[in-house]
Design a protein around this nucleic acid. Structure first.
Lengths: 208, 208
DNA sequence: GACCCTCTTGATCGGTCGCTCAACACAGGG
DNA sequence: CCCTGTGTTGAGCGACCGATCAAGAGGGTC
């Protein structure tokens, strides 16, 4: 019994979203033409506009897919490999470092790119971008909660999770501007230093 | 004696750069058409292409102007108002917060926007973006140097200045994605907390 | 006045943009 | 066999893209 078609009737829609996702990531939204997406997906314009009334709807589908891929592709693999909550946070960050290295700092966070490019002009996309950030921060927040007593009670976990995202996105931006992963890595190191200073480890450190 | 022309012979070039600067900031580089720039600058296409062989050359001129405007517009006003090196750093950051508030979080850091949009596809622009970041970080680094003894000797000032930029850019990105300045403000607050923990103030704090 | 140089004008180029639509393929159900 | 519903095809739309260029305006100099 051969594996035949999936649940859906056609995979054209999926191919279009996949192609658009890759091209938006590499080139940005405005710089990517419909024709290029069609070529990459091996589809014809009529098919695209059958599934997506406008180019923006395709963008929304891409952002929806990012939401769906966040846990299975970004979070879960790290959580499976690492159990310590603190190391899970830095494991996720290390995943982005590896992407930077693999692409020679050409590609960064797809959500971050789109956040700055389309947030203002495409309100619906902006909402989905915010939801992507929310999902990411919730994963970090869960790690912070799992730290239990190690994190002082007066620390605002949501705010700290937001800070982790801030450092990641800012670090990636610099890495891309300099084509060098060092600014990202330094930022992560400073973030770890900050965590070390916050954490109640039951230990007093004396430096030097 | 009326004030007549400036040193240069014409201001058309300056008007074009100014118009392009504003539009690239609001809409991004790819999303801004030449025709729109011409309309905004009240110029004709021949004039533009007399000064700038291509659209990318206009982008480079915009980035050069940002380099020139950094100190007089962003750094110096804060340094004139504030003398304490630490407060100078957070004074600069507060300038960006005010921009976010004024624009309802629609506009962020012009360099950051372009960094993510054109860094990969326009190498010459990427270099100028990096130079803009360098200039910004040098201002912060100067503040760190001016802290003298308050900063432990083993702290890497370049790395810390880079971290300030990272937090700023990451914070602005989230502010724009959420159309809310809170993530930026929280990030800056965490950064201040980090500084407080790093600084040798000659004081021991016991919390609570 | 003749000449040059800087800068401006605006029609126009070929190409690409996002998008439309009538026609058609094809499987499932009656 | 026909009908319907779900996709697919590809020619082609008007608009706009970035860019070109011959012509000329206007000031400075001799």
């Amino acid at each position: 019994m051969a594996v035949e078609a999936q649940a859906g009737k056609t995979d054209t829609r999926a191919r279009l979203v996949e192609a658009a996702r890759g091209l938006f990531l590499k080139q940005g939204y405005a710089a990517t033409g419909i024709a290029q997406i069609l070529k990459e997906a091996d589809a014809r314009s009529g098919s695209l506009y059958y599934f997506f009334p406008t180019k923006e709807d395709l963008l929304l589908a891409v952002l929806e897919q990012y939401k769906e891929l966040l846990w299975p592709l970004v979070i879960q693999p790290v959580f499976d490999r690492v159990s310590d909550p603190m190391e899970r946070i830095f494991g996720v960050l290390d995943g982005y470092r590896r992407m930077l290295l693999m692409t020679e700092c050409a590609q960064g966070c797809p959500i971050g790119n789109l956040a700055l490019e389309v947030a203002e002009s495409h309100p619906a996309a902006r909402t989905l971008i915010a939801e992507n950030f929310d999902g990411w921060k919730q994963a970090i927040e869960q790690c912070l909660d799992d730290l239990d007593g190690r994190l002082p009670a007066d620390v605002d976990r949501k705010s700290l999770a937001s800070f982790v995202l801030t450092v990641m996105e800012g670090g990636i931006m610099q890495a891309r501007a300099y084509r060098d992963s060092a600014p990202f890595e330094q930022g992560v190191a400073q973030l770890r230093d900050y965590f070390d200073r916050i954490l109640d480890d039951g230990s007093n450190w004396s430096k030097g």
